[in-house]
């Protein structure tokens, strides 16, 4: 048995009519459904995307922070490395300390370090960096100490020129410079000469870098030269220092 479904004629009139009437409604419903479905799906997808975005943003920020921290750590280790190299080549026993604060007034040059008597720090111990003398401990508390910087006006270090071995006393000028006093006019001193600690006084061991001569003025009447020094240590960027233990 076979069924013959062929149609000899075109679409039946009512068929066409209903198709014509219903198709816009069908389209409207279908499109609306599609739109609702799409919005629904996208909404939930977007919520997920937004969540994912927030998570990635937070992750990125955390990684950036971590990156900065590690960069800072690398720099700190580099600085400590320089100090460590210096400490290894030096005969002195030393203790690494971090500068945690500066003086509470405008007029004097002192810093605070994070090591105190509990770590073996005492008064009158020398504080240095690999670049030169920083100052000496004037007050030692249990956990922190006060260091009078080389550039303070009350600081005085018996020193000598590396080449000529002429002695003098280096005093701070209160700013970022020092002055070497009591160098006779007859002594041969020129800009660029290195000045070292003489070891006299007992606070600073002999041979530590104090600074470098910036300018020399020889007055005709005076007995001594006026010598300005640039300190070896960089006081503007002082972060880690070595305390030379007894």
């Amino acid at each position: 048995m076979t069924v013959d479904n062929r149609r000899a004629q075109g679409a039946f009139f009512f068929e066409s009519f209903f198709l014509l009437v219903i198709s816009p409604v069908q389209s409207l419903i279908t499109n609306t459904l599609d739109a609702v479905s799409e919005t629904y799906n996208h909404y939930f997808m977007l919520v997920d995307v937004a969540r994912e975005n927030d998570r990635l943003q937070a992750e990125m920020e955390a990684l950036l922070r971590e990156n900065k921290r590690l960069q800072e750590e690398v720099r700190r280790l580099e600085r400590i490395g320089h100090l460590g190299e210096y400490a290894a080549t030096s005969d002195e026993k030393s203790l690494l300390a971090t500068v945690i604060g500066r003086d509470a007034t405008q007029w004097v040059k002192t810093v605070y370090i994070d090591k105190g008597t509990r770590d073996g720090v005492q008064e009158n111990l020398a504080v240095v960096t690999n670049a030169g003398i920083v100052g000496h401990v004037t007050q030692a508390g249990p956990n922190s100490s006060k260091v009078l910087l080389l550039v303070d006006r009350r600081s005085a270090i018996d020193s000598l020129f590396m080449e000529s071995r002429v002695p003098g006393v280096v005093v701070g000028l209160g700013a970022d410079l020092c002055e070497m006093k009591y160098v006779p006019v007859t002594a041969e001193v020129k800009a660029g000469d290195w000045v070292l600690s003489s070891g006299i006084g007992g606070v600073f061991p002999k041979g530590l870098v104090v600074g470098r001569v910036l300018s020399v003025v020889k007055s005709k009447q005076g007995l001594f030269q006026e010598i300005q020094l640039a300190p070896g240590a960089d006081f503007a960027r002082l972060e880690e220092v070595l305390v030379l233990l007894p």
Binding site: D103, A104, V108
Partner: peptide, 14 residues
Amino acid sequence: FAQDCLSGVMLGVN
């Protein structure tokens, strides 16, 4: 007084 204690300045000036 607190400033003097936290400073290397001559004690009493502040």
